[in-house]
Computed example of a mutant assay.
Amino acid sequence: MSGPLRIGLGILLVLVGALWTLQGLGVVGGSVMSGVTLWAIIGPVVVLAGLALALSARRRGGGTTP
């Protein structure tokens, strides 16, 4: 997987994880996920995974392997 793709996927995971966290905490309503504690736990895990993915791609020089 190329560097820019990994960074983009990492950013997407961070955004989705943040949304899931807010839904789990009941801040964002209108979903069956709203107010469900499980999503308040899964969300930060997804955020951390996204950050790890994006930062690992950045540290490797953006995936500029020959």
Rank of each mutant, 00 (worst) to 15 (best):
M1T: 13
M1L: 12
M1Y: 14
S2L: 12
G3S: 09
G3H: 04
L5C: 03
L5E: 06
L5D: 06
L5N: 10
R6D: 05
R6C: 09
R6G: 13
R6Q: 15
I7F: 07
G8Q: 06
G8S: 09
G8N: 08
L9W: 07
L9Y: 08
L9D: 00
G10V: 09
G10H: 02
G10C: 09
I11R: 01
I11S: 07
I11N: 03
I11G: 01
I11L: 15
L12W: 05
L12F: 11
L12E: 02
L13S: 08
L13E: 05
V14T: 12
L15K: 01
L15Y: 02
V16Y: 04
V16H: 00
V16M: 12
G17E: 00
L19Q: 13
W20I: 04
W20F: 14
W20S: 07
T21N: 03
T21M: 11
T21C: 08
L22I: 11
Q23W: 03
G24R: 04
G24C: 13
G24Y: 04
L25R: 13
L25F: 09
G26C: 12
V27D: 07
V27G: 04
V27L: 15
V28Y: 10
V28S: 01
V28R: 01
G30I: 09
S31H: 07
S31F: 12
V32F: 15
V32A: 14
V32C: 00
V32H: 13
M33E: 08
M33A: 14
S34R: 02
G35C: 05
G35E: 07
G35M: 06
G35V: 02
V36P: 01
T37G: 05
T37W: 13
L38T: 11
A40S: 15
A40W: 10
I41S: 08
I41V: 14
I42Q: 02
G43A: 07
G43P: 01
P44I: 11
P44A: 10
V45K: 01
V45Y: 01
V47W: 00
V47G: 00
V47R: 00
V47D: 00
L48W: 10
L48N: 03
A49V: 13
A49F: 10
G50D: 02
G50K: 03
L51N: 02
A52E: 05
A52P: 00
L53P: 01
L53Y: 02
A54T: 09
A54S: 12
L55K: 07
L55V: 15
S56E: 08
A57F: 09
R58D: 06
R59W: 11
R60W: 06
R60C: 03
R60N: 12
G61Y: 06
G62C: 10
G62Y: 11
G63Y: 04
T64W: 08
T64R: 15
T64G: 11
T64I: 11
T65S: 14
T65K: 10
